[in-house]
């Protein structure tokens, strides 16, 4: 399997704090890669560097065979990198349909030129995540779980080739989490590669083909779900060292 994304030696410093240090990771085409780690491990910072919200201090980032380092976020969106935010960034004054339409109008390859076709595409994505009946509502009138769904629909409407999901399940109940897991599987079946950050372990274990773990900004383990979760270094990162 070829790699859709190759990050090598990514480092991000915020003044004195090293948020991400020398992280290299590959994402294969069509795979779901789980990214886990304790709070403050640098997961979101890593995703920010992939989609261009942040620029790394060092390292390189190759997407579909070309380096995207230094490209602004909108150019990376045109190349096919879509993402959701943990702290959601909806367009509050716009309707749910318009919110998703923006993704369809401006996303991969610069998006649809026709507003009509963009709306159609947005409608499909909203129906897919279960917001089909709420398209006329204003985005700021949605409740928490629906906002999460909208965040996902907006990213999907971009028709991305790589989807970065930053905690799309936080705050959802069990039933809702099951639904989103199924949705994400369907998205992968369409051939979209996915990087998923999640604290919900059930989601990580049932979705991920591989998992890698960040701790204090460094990659400590990478491998299959079972291997990684049994690894003593991962246990230590989450629970601390056993006192002897």
């Amino acid at each position: 399997m070829e790699n859709i994304l190759e990050a090598s030696g990514l480092t991000k410093r915020f003044h004195g704090l090293v948020a991400v240090h020398d992280v290299s990771v590959q994402l294969r085409r069509g795979e779901i890669l789980g990214l886990i780690g304790p709070n403050g491990a640098g997961k979101t910072t890593l995703v920010d560097m992939v989609n261009g919200t942040l620029e790394p201090n060092a390292g390189d980032l190759v997407f579909e065979g070309r380096s995207v380092r230094g490209l602004p976020a909108y150019r990376r969106a045109h190349l096919g990198i879509g993402r959701t935010f943990q702290i959601m960034k909806p367009f509050p004054g716009m309707s749910v349909l318009e919110n998703a339409s923006i993704g369809a109008l401006f996303g991969t390859n610069g998006g649809e030129r026709s507003i009509g076709r963009a709306r159609e595409q947005a409608r499909e994505c909203l129906a897919f995540v279960g917001l089909g009946r709420r398209i006329a509502q204003r985005a700021d009138a949605l409740g928490g779980p629906d906002r999460k769904r909208l965040e996902l629909a907006r990213a999907l409407a971009m028709r991305p080739r790589l989807l970065l999901l930053d905690e799309v399940m936080a705050g959802l109940n069990h039933v809702e989490i099951e639904e989103v897991i199924e949705d994400i599987k369907k998205v992968r079946d369409q051939g979209i590669s996915i990087l998923v950050i999640e604290h919900v372990m059930k989601a990580i274990t049932s979705l991920s083909d591989r998992v890698f773990v960040l701790h204090h900004g460094e990659k400590i383990v990478e491998g299959s779900c079972g291997e990684v979760l049994r690894d003593p270094r991962v246990v230590e990162a989450y629970l601390g060292r056993r006192r002897r």
Binding site: Y74, H78, F85, F91, I102, R154
Partner: peptide, 15 residues
Amino acid sequence: IAIRENEEGAAVMGV
């Protein structure tokens, strides 16, 4: 309008 409503969100979506 997307820029007005959330500029960072707009950029990430390709504007």
